[in-house]
């Protein structure tokens, strides 16, 4: 009787193991099939090497290049987005999120027309670092500024 029961139990464990293997396989295959399509945004390198059609709406993500930010009339703004290899000029007319600034990550949605990304929406990308404001100020005063490139290089590759 007990031997019969443990056989049933063993079968159940085997079926569960096979289920997990099948699920893991299915997930891996689905992930592999969609590996190019599931990215939320494209990097400047991807856009530069394979420029999208002017009517295609896509997302572009990268760092706002230091010193490239130019504010025009009203809410007009232009800047360049870089990933270290390529820069893409961006123009935008609208309200920017609080975290948007030079040397920080951003993700814009829009069209790539004649070598310029015309954004219709801009989001700021936040990194995973949390630090008190006083500490940052103290570090800067002591001559050890928090290196935004180091922090955001990580954010962009993340």
């Amino acid at each position: 009787m007990s031997g019969f029961k443990s056989l049933k139990k063993r079968r159940r464990i085997q079926i569960i193991a096979v289920t997990f293997v099948a699920l893991a396989g299915a997930t891996a295959l689905a992930g592999y099939a969609m590996r190019d399509g599931i990215n939320y945004f494209r990097s400047p390198t991807q856009v530069a090497e394979a420029p999208p059609e002017p009517d295609e709406v896509f997302r572009l993500g990268g760092l706002v290049e230091d010193g490239s930010l130019v504010r025009g009339q009203g809410t007009q703004i232009s800047f360049r987005v870089t990933d270290g290899s390529y820069e893409i000029p961006v123009i935008y007319d609208g309200i920017l999120p609080d975290l948007f600034e030079e040397n920080q990550g951003m993700i814009g949605q829009g069209r790539y027309i004649n070598g310029t990304f015309e954004a219709i929406e801009i989001l700021a990308k936040h990194d995973e670092d949390y630090q008190p404001r006083e500490l940052t100020k103290a570090l800067e005063e002591a001559g050890h500024p928090v290196d935004p490139a180091a922090a955001d290089g990580a954010a962009v590759t993340n």
Binding site: N39, Y40, D127, D129, Y130, P132, A155, T157
Partner: peptide
């Protein structure tokens, strides 16, 4: 998927510290 909007995990078991002790 590293090209997403959400930041990476702030808390992880690796040695790197992302969150200052005070938080």
């Amino acid at each position: 998927w590293n090209q997403g909007l959400h930041q990476g995990a702030s808390l992880s078991l690796d040695a790197e510290e992302h969150v200052a002790d005070v938080f």
